[in-house]
Each structure stands twice: as C-alpha cells, then as structure tokens.
Amino acid sequence: MMAGAEQVPEDRDLIEKACAGDDSAFEALMRRYSGQVRSFIARFFRNRAMVDDLAQETFAKAYFGLKSFRREAALETWLKRIALRQCLDQMRNRKIVTVSFDEDARESADIPGPFDPEHQIKARLLLAQIMQSLAPLDRIILTLHYGDGYSGEEIAKITGLSKANVKVRAFRLRQKLKALRDGGYQ
C-alpha cells in the first residue's frame, strides 16, 4: 500500500452524503461524471453550447432526483438515462438531425474504404437521410450501437427498453444500413 496515497471516495459514499444534504459531495460526483455525460450528449449534438446546456440540466435533474436513485444500476448509467431523456426531448422539440456533414466531419470521416470520394459524399447524404427519417430513439440506438459500439444490454439499460426491443430495432437499422451499403436505399 502506498503511504500518503489520497483515498478517493467511492460513489456510494458520495451519494449517501449528497442525499444527506452535503453539496460538496454532489459537486465531487458532478466533476467525476461530467466528462462521461458531456461525451454522451455530444454523440447526438455537435453544438457545444447545446451539449453543455443539456449536461447542466442533466445534473440539475440528478440533484433533485438523487434520493430516488436505486443503487442497482451504476450511477453513470443512471446519469446517462437522464441525459438521454433530455436529448430525446430536445430532438423532438427541435427536430434536429444528429449527424452533421460539415467539412471537418467529412475530412475526419474519409477513410480509405468502401467508396471513392464521390461515392462517400453520396453515401453520407443517404446516411443523413436515413437518420432524418428515424424516430429520435432509433437515431440514438444507431449512434450508440454503430458509432460507439454499445452492446444491446448497455443500450437497454440506458434507454429503459427491453433487450429484445433493442435487438429488433437494431436489426431494422442494420437492414437500412445494409441497403445503403449495397446502394439500394432510396
């Protein structure tokens, strides 16, 4: 054991303290999970101001709901679930397309891959079309599953859907992507 090593308080202890009214404990939790929550939201919105706005609202909601947090799930999952709700509301209210195709994104997305540059642009536009046609929840599943490699179980935990439901939705999305890959998507 290292002498003088600083003891990092566990989530459980911080939650207990925060529930008892210790705001510094909640502050510590916020700082611990701000990165994960902001990155999670940034998967659906590229506008940084909006990402911060939704993340702040997520933590404010977590502050008032912390006592109802059941410790069966990890705090991170619970926070992501709150964040997801914020994102869904935002998407429904503003009908935002979650994939932007600005020049930066295009450059970063270009890989020596399935298409020549011209076809990549076409495919990108079709992918945007697919995203636009999807329900917000399906957009989120597509992004989490295909963009970030979340498992069906993880997505089920965050979205509150059953694993079977996530599987079915993911299958339908896979079909759409396959059609896009094979050039059959209209």
Partner: peptide, 16 residues
C-alpha cells in the same frame, strides 16, 4: 468491416 468502420466514423464526434 470497412463499411462498419466507415459508418462508425460518420457517427462519431470529435473529443470534447
């Protein structure tokens, strides 16, 4: 595999 990688890159965001 390349196709999946392409889709993944499309759906990813840069670091925050």
């Amino acid at each position: 595999t390349r196709w999946n990688e392409w889709v993944r890159r499309q759906l990813q965001t840069g670091p925050l």
